[in-house]
């Protein structure tokens, strides 16, 4: 038995629940939780049995963790930051972040 998958499950469940809510801010929160879950999945793919820091010359190389998923996750975190900021900017347009109500922008949406 292992613990990490349960944490991942909880993060994903919370993220999906929020993603289904109306309101941009909750959707952004959902994305944040989902990306936490996804990042942990990536790290889990590196097998969590070895948890030594992947720094050459530090600790026992046999115990070092897989550095490749870490590089992926690091990239993913920064992209999540960018996407989160962008979505928050979208939430800020108008006077609330309700996604069910389409504000009147003066534009014709029928194309």
């Amino acid at each position: 038995m292992t613990v990490l998958p349960i944490s991942i499950g909880i993060l994903v469940a919370g993220g999906v629940y929020l993603l289904c809510q109306p309101g941009m801010v909750r959707i952004v929160f959902g994305i944040t939780l989902l990306s936490h879950g996804a990042n942990l999945v990536l790290l889990a793919s590196g097998v969590s049995a070895w948890r030594g820091e992947p720094l050459t010359g530090t600790g026992d190389p046999a115990d070092a963790a897989d550095p490749l998923p870490m590089a992926f996750v690091l990239t993913a975190i920064v992209i999540t930051l960018a996407v989160t900021i962008f979505m928050l900017a979208l939430a800020m347009i108008g006077h609330d972040d309700d996604t069910l109500h389409m504000p009147d922008t003066g534009e014709d949406h029928r194309a």
Binding site: P5, I6, I8, G9
Partner: peptide, 9 residues
């Protein structure tokens, strides 16, 4: 999806 993600992991 939470259970699915956990079990699959």
């Amino acid at each position: 999806l939470g259970i699915g993600a956990g079990v699959a992991t």
